[in-house]
C-alpha cells in the first residue's frame, strides 16, 4: 500500500530528473512490459487536444440562452441535459449547471486538486491548476477576478463552488447585451472557457 517516504527515496526519484525524460522512461518501461499501447496514448492525446474542449460547453450555454425548455432542463438535471447533446464521459459523470445573474456570480475551483468538467470544457488551463488559483479563489474571489480584469458591483454576491466530490460544475454566463438577434451558433462563438468557469464576463 502507499506509504510516506521518510525512510527511503520516493519511487519517482528513481526516474530521470528532467520531467520530459521522466515521462519517456516511464512510457518505455510500461510499453516494454506490454502494459501501455503507445497508439492508445496518441488516441487519448488526440481526444483532448482536438476533439473535446470548451466548444462543447459553449454549445450548451448557447442552447440554454435560446431554448427556455432546455435551460430549465439543464438547471434541473444537467447530466441528462448535456448527455442528450452527446456530452458525457470521464470527469463529467455528474454535472450541475449554475446560472449567473445580476445578483449572483458563480465561480468554480478545485482547491484540493484540479477537478473540472472535461466533457464540456476539456483539459483545465494552467491557471486553474495553479497554486495561486487553488489557494486564493475561495478566500478572495474578487481579488482573483481582478487578476482577470473582472470587477463586480457591490450588489452582486459571489458564490464559489469548490469541487470537492465527483460533481462537476458548469457556469452559465449572463447572455451579452445586444445579442438578441443572434442564433445559437453565433452565440456559442461568444462564449469563452473562462466565462464557463466564472472568471470572465461575456
Amino acid at each position: 500500500m502507499l506509504h510516506d517516504h521518510s525512510d527511503h527515496h520516493p519511487d519517482h526519484a528513481l526516474l530521470p530528473s528532467d520531467p520530459a525524460l521522466r515521462v519517456k522512461a516511464l512510457e518505455t518501461l510500461l510499453v516494454a512490459k506490454g502494459l501501455v499501447d503507445p497508439a492508445a496514448l496518441d488516441a487519448i492525446i488526440e481526444t483532448y487536444a482536438y476533439k473535446i474542449g470548451p466548444r462543447n460547453g459553449a454549445a450548451v450555454v448557447a442552447r440554454a440562452w435560446t431554448d427556455p425548455d432546455f435551460r430549465a432542463y439543464l438547471l434541473r438535471d444537467a447530466t441528462a441535459a448535456v448527455r442528450e447533446m452527446g456530452f458525457y464521459g470521464r470527469q463529467g459523470e455528474h454535472m450541475v449547471a449554475v446560472e449567473n445573474t445580476a445578483d449572483l456570480h458563480n465561480m468554480v475551483v478545485c482547491t484540493l486538486c484540479s477537478c473540472y468538467p472535461w466533457p464540456l470544457l476539456g483539459i483545465p488551463p494552467d491557471w486553474y491548476k495553479s497554486d495561486a488559483y487553488r489557494a486564493r479563489a475561495v478566500r478572495e474571489p474578487r481579488a482573483v477576478l481582478a487578476d482577470f480584469g473582472v470587477s463586480l458591483p457591490a450588489t452582486c454576491a459571489v458564490r464559489v463552488w469548490d469541487s470537492t466530490a465527483e460533481v462537476r460544475y458548469l457556469v452559465i454566463p449572463q447572455r451579452p447585451l445586444g445579442t438578441e438577434g443572434l442564433g445559437a451558433d453565433a452565440l456559442a462563438a461568444r462564449v469563452t472557457r473562462d466565462g464557463m468557469i466564472g472568471t470572465a464576463l461575456l
Binding site: 474571489p141 459571489v158 458564490r159 463552488w161
Partner: peptide, 8 residues
C-alpha cells in the same frame, strides 16, 4: 471580501 459572498 464581501458580506454576501459564499463558498459551496
Amino acid at each position: 471580501e464581501h458580506p454576501l459572498d459564499e463558498v459551496v
